[in-house]
Amino acid sequence: MTTEAATRRIPGAPCWVSLLAHSLSATQEFYGALFGWEFRPGPQHFGPYARAFLNGREVAGLGELAPDRHLPVAWTTYLASDDADTTAEQIRSCGGTVAVGPLDADSAGRMAIASDPHGAIFGIWQGRTMMGTALSEEPGTPVWNELVTQDTDSVRTFYEHVFAFEAEAADPPGFDYLTLHLKGRAVAGIHGVGADLPRDRGPHWMTYFAVPDTDAATRRVTELGGHVLRPARDSAHGRLATVADVEGAVFTVIQPR
């Protein structure tokens, strides 16, 4: 399930995750205590923003929403692009929506915020001086990104056409899951959950963060003011749990096999 940081530079591969919250300080305190992140200022175009570092290397971004913007707080997966403007046009031509950008984030790169035809939000990142997540496969780093949607057939063509993914269906049949490959490597997934799709969230991209002990991590989430949405359970890729932070942003923690 995990991917090397170098893989994330391939156009289409997840390369960065970012969260916009109402209180940057409270969010930094939560993730700093949970994952051991340290923070440094990042581009301030949309307001206060900080990059999270682990062992001196960039792993994620945290920003603060303007006080008058009452938007859902959620992690956003960014997909790599060699040309954000061209990718934005491909998104539009395939039935998606580009809500923000493309625009420059200082000298770090060029970005856009988009959604697929069913409304799942994701970002586009064309790196310049900052290419994306610099550390992977370590506790406290993003190790997998997965689109959770009603069914895989309805969005498969969109992601294949825009990002040139090669999709492989799950085995055994009956489990509605596609693994997305680029240059022979698994980089992301699409999970069709049918009627189990959360009504309050709709289709969305889920970020998985590695932890050394999933059960301990879920206890820590609760201690820090977050919530456990799906308790720790075993899977083919490791022990995982779905949790939410202090402002309700949902993510998954996994103890990889």
Score class of each variant (00 low, 15 high):
residue 23 S to R: 11
residue 23 S to T: 12
residue 24 L to E: 12
residue 25 S to V: 15
residue 25 S to E: 15
residue 26 A to Q: 15
residue 28 Q to L: 08
residue 28 Q to D: 10
residue 29 E to D: 15
residue 31 Y to W: 03
residue 31 Y to S: 01
residue 32 G to Q: 06
residue 34 L to T: 03
residue 35 F to E: 07
residue 36 G to R: 04
residue 36 G to W: 02
residue 37 W to I: 01
residue 37 W to V: 07
residue 39 F to K: 00
residue 40 R to S: 00
residue 40 R to V: 00
residue 40 R to W: 00
residue 42 G to A: 09
residue 43 P to V: 06
residue 43 P to H: 02
residue 44 Q to M: 10
residue 46 F to V: 12
residue 47 G to I: 09
residue 48 P to N: 10
residue 48 P to W: 03
residue 49 Y to L: 13
residue 50 A to W: 02
residue 50 A to D: 13
residue 51 R to V: 07
residue 51 R to F: 10
residue 52 A to H: 02
residue 52 A to P: 00
residue 55 N to C: 01
residue 55 N to Q: 11
residue 56 G to L: 01
residue 57 R to S: 10
residue 57 R to E: 08
residue 59 V to S: 04
residue 60 A to C: 14
residue 60 A to R: 07
residue 62 L to A: 09
residue 62 L to T: 06
residue 63 G to Y: 08
residue 66 A to F: 04
residue 67 P to Y: 01
residue 70 H to L: 11
residue 73 V to L: 05
residue 74 A to N: 11
residue 74 A to I: 05
residue 75 W to P: 01
residue 76 T to R: 12
residue 77 T to V: 15
residue 77 T to W: 02
residue 79 L to C: 06
residue 79 L to M: 10
residue 79 L to N: 04
residue 79 L to G: 05
residue 80 A to H: 02
residue 81 S to Q: 02
residue 82 D to E: 13
residue 82 D to R: 08
residue 84 A to F: 07
residue 84 A to Y: 05
residue 84 A to K: 08
residue 85 D to N: 13
residue 85 D to T: 12
residue 85 D to H: 15
residue 87 T to H: 03
residue 90 Q to E: 12
residue 91 I to L: 12
residue 91 I to P: 11
residue 91 I to W: 08
residue 92 R to T: 15
residue 92 R to M: 09
residue 93 S to W: 03
residue 95 G to T: 07
residue 97 T to D: 09
residue 101 G to V: 07
residue 102 P to S: 03
residue 104 D to S: 12
residue 105 A to N: 04
residue 107 S to M: 14
residue 108 A to N: 10
residue 110 R to N: 06
residue 110 R to Q: 02
residue 112 A to Y: 04
residue 112 A to L: 13
residue 112 A to S: 13
residue 113 I to Q: 12
residue 114 A to K: 04
residue 114 A to E: 06
residue 115 S to A: 15
residue 116 D to F: 10
residue 116 D to K: 08
residue 118 H to F: 09
residue 120 A to L: 09
residue 121 I to D: 00
residue 121 I to A: 14
residue 122 F to Y: 14
residue 124 I to T: 04
residue 125 W to K: 08
residue 125 W to G: 04
residue 126 Q to A: 11
residue 126 Q to V: 06
residue 126 Q to S: 05
residue 127 G to T: 07
residue 128 R to T: 13
